[in-house]
């Protein structure tokens, strides 16, 4: 089992680097989709079938929306040359992050050595208390049902934000000429 974990994790890292460094946005989005689906396999192997199912569904929705955004944006020309300063600063910050994360690593138990302390109570009592053989669903929908209510609130807020941002009335108020969907801005200007 262990070599499979290592292989999948290395695949995830390589896929992420490919997604970020690819010149074509559509290829990047598809690479992120591949990463998400490989992640769902890893979740399944880590003993989390519920998470794996959710991950597959969510990843497909995210990739669909991002492909829509990528197709809408057409060809994007970066007008200025990539500035070295932001890349170098970004790399320095990432290295700082890695340093702190490695320091925090010392406090974690070795991989696979989890001793569920609170989780033990749920594993013992979930089935008797709720009649649900799946401990994750017993926690999610019964013991901690208000979390799901909060989740629904967050989703509603996100949808409201997206509706406000994309409402057609705001587009008419634009002084600039409207962009024809699917046509790159360079073409629309000419």
């Amino acid at each position: 089992m262990e070599p499979t974990f290592y292989g999948l994790l290395v695949f995830l890292i390589i896929g992420s680097i490919v997604a970020l460094e690819m010149k074509d946005i559509l290829s990047s989005v598809i690479a992120v989709g591949v990463v998400g689906l490989a992640l769902s396999i890893l979740f399944l192997l880590l003993g989390a079938p519920d998470i794996a199912i959710t991950q597959v569904v969510v990843e497909i929705i995210v990739v669909t929306v991002l492909i829509r955004a990528a197709a809408r944006s057409g060809r994007v020309e970066m007008t200025r040359r990539p500035d070295l300063v932001s890349t170098v600063l970004g790399l320095i910050l990432v290295l700082c992050f890695c340093g702190f994360a490695l320091a925090a690593l010392e406090t974690l138990r070795p991989f696979g050595g989890a001793r569920p302390l609170v989780g033990h109570w749920y594993l013992v009592n979930a089935e008797a208390g709720t009649g649900c053989a799946n401990a994750v669903m017993a926690i999610l929908l019964d013991f901690r049902g208000y979390d799901t209510l909060g989740e629904a609130t967050v989703i509603l807020t996100a949808i409201l934000g997206a509706v406000v941002l994309l409402r057609p009335k705001a587009r008419e108020e634009e002084a600039e000429p409207a962009v024809v969907p699917g046509v790159p801005a360079e073409v629309a200007h000419e």
């Binding site: 880590l46 003993g47 989390a48 519920d50 998470i51 959710t54 991950q55 969510v58 929705i61 995210v62 989890a114 569920p116 609170v118 989780g119 749920y122 594993l123 979930a126 401990a135 994750v136 926690i139 999610l140 901690r144 979390d147 799901t148 909060g150 989740e151 967050v154 989703i155 807020t157 996100a158 949808i159």
Partner: peptide
């Protein structure tokens, strides 16, 4: 069994990530 609590919380987190 593996620990069920992180799984229950990550399930919420994945859906919120979708919204973001």
């Amino acid at each position: 069994s593996v620990d069920p609590i992180p799984q229950a919380l990550v399930l919420t987190s994945i859906v919120i990530g979708l919204g973001i």
